[in-house]
Write a protein that binds this DNA or RNA. Structure first.
Lengths: 157, 157
DNA sequence: GCCAGAGTTCAGCATTGACTGAATCTTCTG
DNA sequence: CAGAAGATTCAGTCAATGCTGAACTCTGGC
């Protein structure tokens, strides 16, 4: 791995760590986005990322359950191969949108908890809930539109 | 604080903590969204959140610099009062959108780092960059539209 | 059946970082 | 100007947690 590649991998590590995943998850995904060949065995990943086999194993589970990576096996080969499939982007965008839903739900529980407050006091939270409700609906629409456009463009190629 | 209110405050704490802020920042913001009166002194906050004055002081700085809370002072009163202003929502949405920009920038540095790779290998990252570039532009448009509509509705009241 | 190679698990280590609380600084009042 | 009340700072504590590495399990080939 060149130092530029390493910088990219490391930056992705910090980024995904900031989003609640581990640094290793970000490094692994980042590396899988730029490595050649695109499919890597656990041993190869451990060497490239200078991580223990245990870390690779655990991180692969996290990434796979978040649908950010794909695990594939080959006949007559006990090894498992990891790759970053195109669908990973969809999963990432979906979980990004989920943040807005989460916030709306929190706001709604807050409103339930303050049902006895004066209406003027609840206005703060109600506005908050309204904004989240709007974003929660509209942002996925924008994303879907783009993803549809993209697949249309691909077919035309 | 009732137990329902406490649950809301705590949940907001966990949420903002997951977004890179501290649990205390989330608790403080959550409480400021539902407390009465809407303006609270540091001492009141420390008591309500059962936190040290030091934690309130530090957390207030974080929240104020993120424009999530407003600090106000009153003539003839040495105390400072904190509140969650309506503009906080705008700030929150803006920083949410900033995530997409950050990801696009990371992708672009990754592309720069792999300029010598085969085009087929770079396709993964290029698609990634394209998606982020699109979202980065479109999501703020949706948000702006909503915020404008909202302020129009308000004026009509 | 047993060995080699691969994957998983988990106790332990080390690091991180959020919070406390005492000391310090600031500012207003009498 | 002195003193008190409030705000800030920061060294220290404690809990959370990401990673390591060794022990263990699983699978397939000879």
């Amino acid at each position: 791995m060149t130092s530029d590649e390493s910088a990219f991998v490391e930056e992705m590590g910090q980024f995904l760590a900031g989003l609640g995943m581990t640094p290793m998850a970000g490094r692994m995904w980042g590396w899988l986005l730029i490595c050649e060949p695109p499919e890597q065995s656990a041993t190869e990943l451990a060497e490239a990322l200078q991580a223990s086999r245990g870390a690779i194993s655990g991180t692969a589970r996290i990434l796979a359950s978040a649908r950010l990576i794909k695990r594939t096996t080959r006949r007559g080969d006990r090894r498992e191969y990891f790759s970053a499939p195109p669908e990973a982007l969809d999963s990432m965008l979906a979980s990004a949108s989920a943040i807005y839903r989460r916030l709306r739900e929190i706001a709604e529980r807050g409103l339930a908890a303050t049902s006895d407050h004066a209406p003027s006091a609840r206005a703060r939270l109600e506005e908050f809930r309204d904004v989240m409700r709007f974003i929660e609906v509209e942002v996925p629409l924008v994303i879907d539109r783009f993803l549809r456009d993209r697949s249309t463009r691909k077919e035309m190629k």
